[in-house]
Every structure is written in structure tokens, then in C-alpha cells.
């Protein structure tokens, strides 16, 4: 469990893909590495979010509460990022994340991430680019869906 392995994991996260290695190292260094036992919750649906989680090891269940009670909607594995929207803007958590196995998680807090962005404007550009690409893709998907909907 060293910084290097964490940097490795960070690099696989799309949001951080364009950021250079030194800055990822810094991000890793100022983030907390936390262990979770099975069943322990990383965050709860509806709570105010202030950090993103990057799964270094283990798996987590994503649960959403439905009228019929809580339902597991997905399972995330190594190198997944959860709650990354929370470190960019204030939104309540949209789901509950709980450890499915023993887990090692890197917790990136919103304050630290924003401080880094302020410190390195290049980093903001990279994040913006990634977000823009994602938006573009979503728009295309939506257009395709509409087109197929109209065709039907």
C-alpha cells in the first residue's frame, strides 16, 4: 500500500485521466486511505456528499431505496470511482454504497480536490475536457434514443 499503487488506481479513473502523474501523486498523498469491513457503509443515500471514493481493492454494492425497500442495483469492483459528482458540486448522494467484501478505499475530499484545481488550472482544463466529452456522449445517446424512438 504505497502511493504508487494509488496513483495507478487514480490514473484509471476517467475523470483524472488527463492529469499528469506528479499531481496525481499529490492528490493521492493528501487523500485518506481507509479500510472497510463487509457491510460497512461508505456513504448513505440522501446525505450531503463531500468526497469521492476510489476502490483500490474489494467490491462494493450500490443500493437504492425503492418503495419496496432497499435494492442493490449494481456492484462495483477495483478501480471504480463512486460519488465523483460530489467533489464538483453540492448534491445529495443518489445511492447508498456499502462494502460487499473487505475493501481498501481512497477517499478524495471535495475541499482538497478543489484546492488542487485552484492550484493547478491545467488540471481544471483536463477535468472540464473529460466532463465535456461525457456530456457530448450523453447528448449523442439521447439523440440516438430519440431518433430510434421516432423511427419506432
Amino acid at each position: 500500500m504505497t502511493l504508487d499503487s494509488e496513483v495507478d488506481a487514480l490514473r484509471r479513473v476517467p475523470l483524472f485521466r488527463g492529469i499528469d502523474a506528479t499531481k496525481l501523486r499529490l492528490l493521492a498523498f493528501i487523500s485518506d486511505r481507509t479500510h472497510f469491513a463487509p457491510g460497512e457503509e461508505l456513504c448513505r443515500q440522501g446525505e450531503e456528499g463531500d468526497s469521492a471514493f476510489i476502490i483500490l481493492e474489494g467490491e462494493a454494492d450500490i443500493r437504492v431505496s425503492t418503495p419496496d425497500g432497499e435494492r442493490t442495483v449494481a456492484r462495483l469492483g477495483q478501480h471504480s470511482i463512486v460519488g465523483e459528482i460530489a467533489i464538483l458540486c453540492d448534491v445529495p448522494r443518489t445511492a447508498t454504497v456499502a462494502a460487499a467484501t473487505e475493501m481498501d478505499v481512497l477517499t478524495v475530499s471535495k475541499d482538497d480536490f478543489l484546492r488542487l484545481l485552484k492550484e493547478f488550472p491545467d488540471m481544471s482544463l483536463e477535468v472540464m475536457r473529460t466532463l465535456a466529452q461525457r456530456l457530448e456522449r450523453t447528448t449523442q445517446d439521447l439523440a440516438a434514443q430519440k431518433a430510434s424512438g421516432a423511427a419506432a
Binding site: R25, L26, F29, I30, D112, R115, L116, K118, E119, F120
Partner: peptide
């Protein structure tokens, strides 16, 4: 030194 050399002092990091 590597991590923090380029950090300005008002960042608090």
C-alpha cells in the same frame, strides 16, 4: 519537495 515545490503558500495544502 517533489510534491509541494510548485504549491503556492496560500493554498493551505
Amino acid at each position: 519537495v517533489e510534491l509541494f515545490a510548485n504549491i503556492s503558500d496560500d493554498s493551505g495544502l
